[in-house]
Nucleic acid binder design. Structure first.
Length: 104
DNA sequence: CGAGTGACCGCAA
DNA sequence: ATTGCGGCCACTC
């Protein structure tokens, strides 16, 4: 969270802080970056951002996997299971309890 | 610089 | 209950 870090940088920063076995929503990341209404930007950036970041831990507010994820949703689901997150029909199981939050 | 786009969110019909 | 539409903001071309 550098002062000169752009919205995109802040999102990527929080993203890298997300622990394995935990997921977060676009809206939450956007709000953490300081723009609660920029949830779409997070997704847009993600597609153009670094695949090295845990984008697979990004889900919509329903806890469902994103559509059009790099490689395919099945890949993301598999990765999430590898992280310790169980998914059913591309939906994170116990999403409410698996949702990661920075200061809560 | 201007316009278009986007892996979303929320509400209305 | 489900479906459709608009809107906010930042990033890309």
């Amino acid at each position: 969270m550098q002062p000169d870090a752009s919205f995109r940088d802040q999102v990527e920063c929080f993203m890298s802080l997300v622990p394995a076995g935990r997921v977060t929503t676009y809206g939450d990341l956007a709000a953490l970056a300081g723009h609660p209404y920029a949830a779409r930007i997070v997704g847009g950036i993600a597609h153009h951002g670094d695949q090295k970041l845990p984008w697979h831990r990004l889900v919509n507010r329903f806890g469902g996997l994103a559509s059009g994820y790099y490689g395919g949703r099945e890949v993301q689901a598999t990765i999430l299971e590898t992280e310790g997150v169980t998914c059913t029909d591309f939906i994170v199981d116990n999403f409410a309890e698996r949702r990661w939050q920075p200061s809560l």
